[in-house]
Design a protein around this nucleic acid. Structure first.
Lengths: 273, 273
DNA sequence: TTGCTCCTCACGTCACGTGAGGTGGC
DNA sequence: TTGCTCCTCACGTCACGTGAGGTGGC
């Protein structure tokens, strides 16, 4: 026979607040062993302490309740551990982003100046292979990594020659709504019809005129290049419609030294008359 | 004359979403340089990009908007940097807690067993000097640290002899509502009236009977001791009212090796007949 | 019998995101 | 003139916390 305890005692035993325990009951994460039909009093079994201890740790690690439910409902230990490991990996990523943001904040406060030159450039039609997807601003890095891996595999398989650095197109919506149709591309030599796998398609990036600024450093600081470019374009009143183009000249794939990373930001402008 | 841009352009320049920019306007964090009286159209000045860049970094570091407002309104650089530094320090603390929680989760999943013995003990009236305060569960560590520092200074100044390990009293409310009147104390030799500074008072902890379990390891795992104690007390039906008492036998002040830390948890029980 | 514990709503918090429905500007 | 951008509500999200008002159990 299980020992049953009141919600207050269970709270003291598990360090979960009474309000939290009631909430976990409501959403079906931790259902009391018994609920009195007339008074509604919840009774928890001593054997439920183990589940509560797991819930508390997962919640302290900010795992969403839906995921916690999945972990608790996991049939076998492997499924459970996979879900937990995945969450820990996501936390690692966020930690890395936090580190980058702190560095970026320090640089901003220290008044480090990019002092880069803005040039106006016409870019011709660019034959490329590409992957398009609806991407959230915060997921862009990992989405790009996967996309370029797939693109590179397709390029190699189709024996297409690279003609320049990898790049991507970002529509206004991507910044204004934090989600949009991003196009990752690899410029390749124009080719007759080739068979491409998966999400990869053959495209021609349209010719256009851009204000261009090369950003040196981490992606976390990229907004500073955008600020300079946008200000210059607005000042001269030469803004034009169309997606912003980024080209990745030197990336983490080339060197671990982020201060050496180079990203070209191309902001669409009207052609000079 | 400042260049003015639309909210959409400003969004692209700063990587802040349009919705976020409108929200920052609503709450007075970033007011557009101009708002059209008839259409309500917001116009941002290119010079506002710098403020936006700071806001974005602070928000990425999860600084609350009220604090962001304080930073932006800071008259001088020192005030501003102090607020930012304080936030970074809070983040460091949370990071440390996350590390501890991950370790605690690993230990739980690995099935490490405390296997400690529970004893029943009568504790006599304990003369002590103490500090009481309303403490939130999550702030307990730092509150205790400050409290013991103040207590120790008062003890030394009053030439009172320590008679045992430092401890604290935790009412049920502290666990059930995550906030409660915590008492941090140092047991001292009974003394005639002495002059004590600040929040420090002279108290006698009442005699009582406890189920006692010594927990070895980090505070993050302390709930496991509570689970074992609560279960044992419930099983025997000997629970009694009164605050739970913790005694800090070996702490971070004594050794950096958390696996050597010892915390005695005393759960009130009814005296044996 | 008296508190104390427990109960259920209903609403608040925080920082926006999600539409709906409508208007202004090039 | 036609879209496109911008506008303002009103409501939703997430995981509880905060009372209010009321009842059961020792």
């Amino acid at each position: 026979m299980d020992v049953l305890v009141t919600i207050g005692e269970f709270s003291r035993m598990t360090h979960l607040s009474v309000k939290a325990l009631r909430h976990y009951h409501d959403v079906g994460i931790l259902t009391p062993a018994d609920v009195d039909g007339v008074s509604g009093y919840r009774r928890y079994a001593a054997t439920q302490v183990a589940a509560a201890q797991l819930i508390r740790r997962l919640r302290d690690l900010e795992m969403p309740l839906d995921d916690v439910r999945t972990v608790l409902a996991a049939a076998d230990v492997d499924t459970r551990n996979a879900a937990i490991t995945a969450h820990l990996a996501r936390m690692e990523q966020r930690l890395e982003q936090t580190r980058a943001t702190v560095a970026s904040l320090r640089a901003l406060l220290d008044g480090e100046r990019a002092a880069a030159a803005i040039t106006i450039r016409h870019i011709d039609t660019t034959p490329a292979i590409a992957i398009e997807g609806s991407v959230a601003f915060d997921d862009c890095d990992s989405w790009l990594t996967a996309a370029y891996e797939e693109l590179e595999a397709a390029r190699a398989a189709a024996h297409l020659a690279l003609t320049g650095p990898a790049g991507a197109l970002y529509p206004a919506e991507f910044f204004e709504a934090e989600t949009g149709a991003v196009v990752a591309y690899l410029p390749v030599a124009p080719a007759t019809t080739v068979h491409l796998r998966g999400r990869v398609t053959r495209v021609d990036l349209p010719a256009a005129d851009f204000a261009v600024l090369v950003h040196r450093g981490a992606f976390a600081d990229l907004d500073r290049a955008y600020g300079s470019l946008g200000a210059a374009v607005a000042e001269q009143g030469i803004g034009a419609a169309g997606p912003i183009r980024e080209r990745y000249l030197v990336t983490a794939a080339d060197t671990d030294d982020v201060t050496a990373h180079l990203t070209e930001v191309c902001w669409p402008v009207a052609p000079r008359p």
